[in-house]
């Protein structure tokens, strides 16, 4: 327990941790402020204005259609006729359904529809920060020789590494939970002032909470993997290098090669696809080059669903492999 207290203190004392968590909070505040000012509540006045706008657009379209039809009729038999349908009744006739008032309304924050994206944004930002904090926490210890010093006091190596990762993950959990609660509160307020919360049911709230928990899991895995990689390489830079390497090679390189080779569902190699699948429960990848023709629907492209089960399995596998190797190297390596 004393070791755990010491490690928690150490993590909290690090300026890097403070800077990064402070930076995350600033970015999130900027996002919330942006959302506040770009959205507006629907009042009877804005609805009426939007309706009027839709109506007048519709009228303009109707007038345009009438002149088009006249031009078409007049053009019959002249060379210009090729620019018009053979049957002038086929000229586009606007429908009222093509001019819905909703499309002319200023952006409004519909909590049920838009907040899930905000959770994903939060989880992504905090996960990146968690990776870096985890990596630098143990990486700086290795590189500075602090780890060796600590092992002279606490020779049980696995206990030391587990305690460190435990301190890291509990700090991340606490931080993320507080942040998510605040995030939910802030956006509920924004929805209240600049949109609506009306469509929220208890089931919808429940799925919001579940999504937030999945976001928390994403953050924790990112932190643990950053920690594990830096511990394996005994340097923060190793974790960073691996992250950059994966992004460059797998995300850009491999994806571009696969896409150029017209390999189907190349998006499967993108970490973002899997992260989205994890957060949104499913991601559908479409192969636009394929066509399953049917009488009713015309071309139906092939699709591939990535489910959150598969994504979760991937996250667990990543966690187990990286942390497992970190523990194994910790146990067996010569510390010089």
């Amino acid at each position: 327990m004393s070791l755990y207290t010491a490690e928690t203190r150490r993590l909290g004392k690090r300026r890097f941790t403070k800077f990064l968590l402070g930076g995350v909070i600033l970015v999130l505040i900027a996002i919330a402020v942006g959302m506040f000012f770009t959205n507006e509540k629907n009042t009877p006045a804005t609805i009426a204005a939007a309706q009027a706008k839709a109506d007048s657009e519709f009228q303009a379209a109707v007038r345009q259609s009438a002149t088009d039809k006249q031009t078409c009729v007049a053009a019959q038999g002249t060379p210009d006729a090729s620019n018009w349908p053979t049957n002038c009744d086929d000229v586009y006739q606007p429908q009222t359904s093509d001019f819905q008032a909703a499309w002319y309304m200023p952006a409004t924050f519909d909590f049920r529809e838009q907040f899930p994206n905000m959770i994903t944004a939060l989880a992504a930002i905090v996960a990146v920060a968690a990776f870096v904090i985890g990596a630098s926490f143990v990486g700086a210890e290795w590189a500075s020789g602090g780890m060796m010093n600590l092992l002279l006091w606490r020779p049980r190596r696995l206990q030391v590494l587990s305690t460190k990762i435990g301190a890291l993950l509990s700090l991340l959990t606490g931080f993320t939970i507080v942040l998510m609660a605040a995030w939910t509160g802030v956006f509920a307020l924004i929805a209240n002032l600049r949109g609506s919360l009306d469509t929220m049911t208890s089931g919808a709230w429940q799925s919001i909470v579940l999504m937030e928990l999945r976001g928390l899991a994403l953050v924790l895995v990112a932190g643990a993997v950053g920690f594990g990689l830096a511990s394996i390489g005994r340097h923060t830079a190793v974790a960073m290098g691996v992250a950059v390497g994966v992004v460059v090679l797998l995300q850009f390189g491999l994806y571009i090669v696969l896409a150029m080779a017209n390999v189907r569902f190349a998006e499967v190699v993108l970490a973002t696809s899997w992260a989205t699948a994890w957060m949104d429960k499913t991601v559908t990848i479409t192969d636009w080059n394929s066509c399953n023709f049917s009488g009713n629907n015309g071309c139906e492209p092939n699709t591939l669903d990535l489910t959150w089960h598969a994504a979760g399995g991937g996250l667990i596998a990543l966690l187990v492999v990286v942390v497992g190797i970190a523990m194994w190297t910790m146990r067996s390596r010569d510390i010089t």
Binding site: L3, A6, A140, G145, W153
Partner: peptide, 18 residues
């Protein structure tokens, strides 16, 4: 070597805690 950004007192008190 010690972690350079901590003071001597912090370094030692962390070890003492541990």
């Amino acid at each position: 070597q010690f972690f350079g950004n901590f003071s001597a007192q912090d370094t030692l008190s962390l070890l003492a805690d541990a």
